[in-house]
Amino acid sequence: MSIQHFRVALIPFFAAFCLPVFAHPETLVKVKDAEDQLGARVGYIELDLNSGKILESFRPEERFPMMSTFKVLLCGAVLSRVDAGQEQLGRRIHYSQNDLVKYSPVTEKHLTDGMTVRELCSAAITMSDNTAANLLLTTIGGPKELTAFLHNMGDHVTRLDRWEPELNEAIPNDERDTTMPAAMATTLRKLLTGELLTLASRQQLIDWMEADKVAGPLLRSALPAGWFIADKSGASERGSRGIIAALGPDGKPSRIVVIYTTGSQATMDERNRQIAEIGASLIKHW
């Protein structure tokens, strides 16, 4: 058993032996400061991975655009179909130039040979490839079927209504393609630790998130040596930015963190910096 498999397999085991986890309101002070700095709403939640207890939250039940963070949920739905014998990670999917949409750094290189379902999930999560996400959405029946999958998990909040890139429109008060921090954190925890997916599929999902290559300026920039993080970021119109993550010290995840912001006029660099500073406060007061 690899170190990674050891880590995921023991998450339920550690729940019975973990020390009490204490919240630190200092992080919420930073979240509120980020709102002031960005001139935008910020949603935040910090969840204990083992118990599911909410440690801190700010606007946990307000809607925010999901942006590309939905791609983790999408690959969770794909893995659920794999577990049920309805899909194979090794199945190759062929597509054409007409299928390519904006920001497809991986799929645009494989027009001649296509990509496997496994490769598409990797591209969608680690590189946020939009065509990969659309191709995967097609395999499960489209955005409405992803919403149905989430409903069956008990998440009646999170919804996907459109495809890439239209889902990134982020119109104020538009509930399409949105979630709430509390709903996203709970759903992510179920995917990573619950019985919905097999152990192998849970491991695969967290491996893809751990290999994320496009979230460096966010929480990863504040991470001390030896800490673990598996994450997925997102960005969209109207100053929207977000990240969902499982992270913790000693090389294993122990908390879920979800951060969303929307409605800012700030630059992408400034949005990144504010999220990184929230992460730094979280780690300092861990």
Rank of each mutant, 00 (worst) to 15 (best):
K252C: 11
W163F: 14
G142R: 01
I45S: 05
K213I: 08
I229V: 05
L160A: 07
L223S: 02
D161V: 03
R241V: 05
A245C: 07
G85C: 07
I256V: 09
G242V: 00
K252W: 07
N50G: 15
N168M: 04
H24L: 06
L223R: 02
G251W: 05
D174M: 03
Q88L: 12
I11F: 12
T187R: 00
Q88K: 14
R118G: 15
A133S: 11
R220A: 01
H24Q: 07
I125V: 11
D83Q: 07
E145K: 13
N168I: 05
D155I: 07
T186H: 15
E166R: 07
K284T: 11
P224R: 02
F228C: 03
L223P: 00
G279C: 10
I244L: 05
E277V: 08
A215P: 03
L218R: 01
E175S: 10
Y44G: 00
L111T: 11
S254V: 10
T178L: 01
A211L: 07
I259S: 00
R241Q: 05
L10P: 08
L55C: 04
T262H: 12
A235T: 05
D155N: 12
N173A: 11
S254F: 05
D231V: 03
K284E: 13
L47R: 01
K284M: 11
L223I: 13
A170P: 10
T267A: 11
I283H: 01
S96A: 14
S236C: 05
H285Q: 06
R238N: 15
M67S: 09
E145V: 10
F228T: 03
H156R: 11
T261M: 15
R159T: 06
M184L: 03
P172R: 08
A280G: 11
E270R: 06
R91D: 04
K232D: 00
E169K: 07
F6G: 08
H285K: 05
L55A: 02
T267E: 10
L219M: 05
Y44A: 00
S2R: 11
R202A: 13
L188Y: 05
A266T: 12
D83R: 01
R7G: 14
M66S: 01
G216W: 07
S80E: 14
L160H: 02
A225T: 13
Q265G: 14
I256M: 03
R220Q: 02
S281R: 09
H151T: 12
P20D: 14
G85V: 04
A16S: 15
S281L: 09
E61G: 14
A235C: 03
N98S: 14
A225L: 09
T186L: 15
S221Y: 07
L137R: 00
S254Y: 06
D231E: 03
S96L: 10
R81I: 03
K284N: 10
W163M: 09
G142E: 02
E169S: 13
A183R: 06
S51N: 10
D99C: 06
E175Y: 11
T126I: 07
F17L: 10
T126N: 04
L136S: 00
T198I: 05
R81G: 05
F149V: 06
L219W: 02
R118I: 08
P217Q: 11
I229M: 05
G43R: 00
T186N: 13
I54N: 04
N168C: 06
Q88P: 02
Q88R: 13
W286S: 00
I3L: 15
I244M: 04
T198E: 11
A245T: 01
F70G: 03
Y103G: 09
A183C: 06
G76S: 07
V106C: 09
P60L: 07
M268A: 07
F13V: 13
S221D: 09
K252D: 05
K252Q: 12
L74T: 03
A77C: 14
I54V: 14
Y103D: 08
R271A: 15
R59C: 00
I259D: 00
W286E: 00
G226V: 01
L218G: 04
N168G: 09
S221M: 08
Y44C: 00
S57R: 10
Q265A: 14
R159C: 03
M180G: 09
G216V: 05
G226F: 03
S201H: 06
L160V: 12
Q88A: 12
L89N: 03
D113E: 14
N152D: 15
T198Q: 12
L55F: 09
E175F: 11
E175V: 13
R91T: 07
E210D: 07
K284A: 15
S236D: 07
F64Y: 04
Q97K: 15
V8Y: 15
L47S: 05
E87W: 02
L188T: 06
H156L: 11
E169Y: 09
I93T: 03
A246S: 05
